[in-house]
Simulated assay, not measured.
Amino acid sequence: MEIINTIGRRKTSVARIYMKPGKGEITVNNRSIDVYFPFDLHQIVVKQPLALVGVDGSYDININVDGGGIKGQAEAA
């Protein structure tokens, strides 16, 4: 199984993303995306690229974010 990793940046936030084929589970800093980003808007920002290419729910994603505010972290991811 191949694991894809990449880095995203926005303002002072840095997101390290590890993606592998799976059931669509997204974790942010070892917490569920619903817990880490409680607002729907931030969750939509994180999931938007997957929906755009039509693979939403096809990959398990582990995101490690650091720095900045919550909005910058969501946009970096």
Score class of each variant (00 low, 15 high):
residue 3 I to E: 04
residue 3 I to T: 11
residue 4 I to S: 09
residue 5 N to V: 00
residue 5 N to Y: 12
residue 6 T to H: 10
residue 6 T to C: 12
residue 7 I to G: 04
residue 7 I to N: 01
residue 7 I to K: 04
residue 8 G to L: 04
residue 8 G to A: 02
residue 9 R to Y: 11
residue 10 R to N: 07
residue 10 R to W: 09
residue 10 R to S: 12
residue 11 K to A: 06
residue 11 K to W: 06
residue 12 T to A: 14
residue 12 T to D: 10
residue 12 T to C: 12
residue 13 S to R: 01
residue 14 V to A: 07
residue 15 A to T: 06
residue 15 A to I: 02
residue 15 A to Y: 02
residue 16 R to V: 13
residue 16 R to E: 11
residue 17 I to W: 07
residue 17 I to T: 06
residue 17 I to L: 06
residue 17 I to P: 09
residue 18 Y to S: 00
residue 19 M to S: 12
residue 19 M to V: 12
residue 19 M to W: 01
residue 20 K to D: 07
residue 21 P to R: 15
residue 22 G to E: 00
residue 23 K to W: 10
residue 23 K to N: 13
residue 25 E to H: 13
residue 25 E to M: 08
residue 26 I to A: 04
residue 26 I to N: 00
residue 26 I to S: 00
residue 26 I to D: 01
residue 26 I to M: 05
residue 26 I to W: 05
residue 27 T to L: 09
residue 27 T to Y: 00
residue 28 V to I: 08
residue 29 N to T: 03
residue 29 N to L: 04
residue 30 N to I: 03
residue 30 N to H: 11
residue 30 N to R: 14
residue 31 R to F: 05
residue 31 R to N: 11
residue 31 R to G: 04
residue 31 R to H: 13
residue 32 S to Y: 06
residue 34 D to Q: 12
residue 35 V to L: 08
residue 35 V to Q: 11
residue 36 Y to G: 01
residue 36 Y to T: 11
residue 38 P to L: 00
residue 39 F to P: 10
residue 39 F to M: 12
residue 39 F to C: 11
residue 40 D to G: 15
residue 41 L to R: 14
residue 42 H to F: 09
residue 42 H to I: 10
residue 43 Q to E: 03
residue 43 Q to W: 01
residue 44 I to Q: 15
residue 44 I to A: 14
residue 44 I to W: 14
residue 45 V to C: 10
residue 46 V to S: 05
residue 46 V to C: 02
residue 46 V to A: 08
residue 47 K to Y: 05
residue 47 K to I: 07
residue 48 Q to M: 13
residue 48 Q to V: 10
residue 50 L to D: 00
residue 50 L to M: 12
residue 50 L to Q: 11
residue 52 L to D: 13
residue 53 V to Q: 04
residue 54 G to C: 09
residue 54 G to K: 03
residue 54 G to H: 01
residue 55 V to P: 00
residue 57 G to R: 07
residue 57 G to H: 06
residue 57 G to K: 02
residue 58 S to P: 11
residue 59 Y to G: 05
residue 59 Y to L: 07
residue 60 D to T: 06
residue 60 D to R: 00
residue 61 I to C: 03
residue 61 I to F: 04
residue 62 N to Y: 09
residue 62 N to R: 14
residue 62 N to H: 09
residue 63 I to F: 05
residue 64 N to T: 13
residue 64 N to K: 15
residue 65 V to P: 02
residue 65 V to K: 07
residue 66 D to H: 14
residue 66 D to V: 15
residue 67 G to Y: 03
residue 68 G to I: 13
residue 68 G to C: 03
residue 68 G to H: 05
residue 68 G to P: 02
residue 69 G to Q: 01
residue 69 G to C: 06
residue 69 G to N: 00
residue 69 G to H: 08
residue 70 I to Y: 10
residue 71 K to P: 12
residue 71 K to V: 15
residue 71 K to S: 15
residue 72 G to C: 02
residue 72 G to D: 08
residue 72 G to L: 04
residue 73 Q to P: 03
residue 73 Q to I: 09
residue 73 Q to R: 00
residue 73 Q to A: 04
residue 75 E to C: 05
residue 75 E to Q: 07
residue 75 E to H: 02
residue 76 A to T: 05
residue 76 A to P: 08
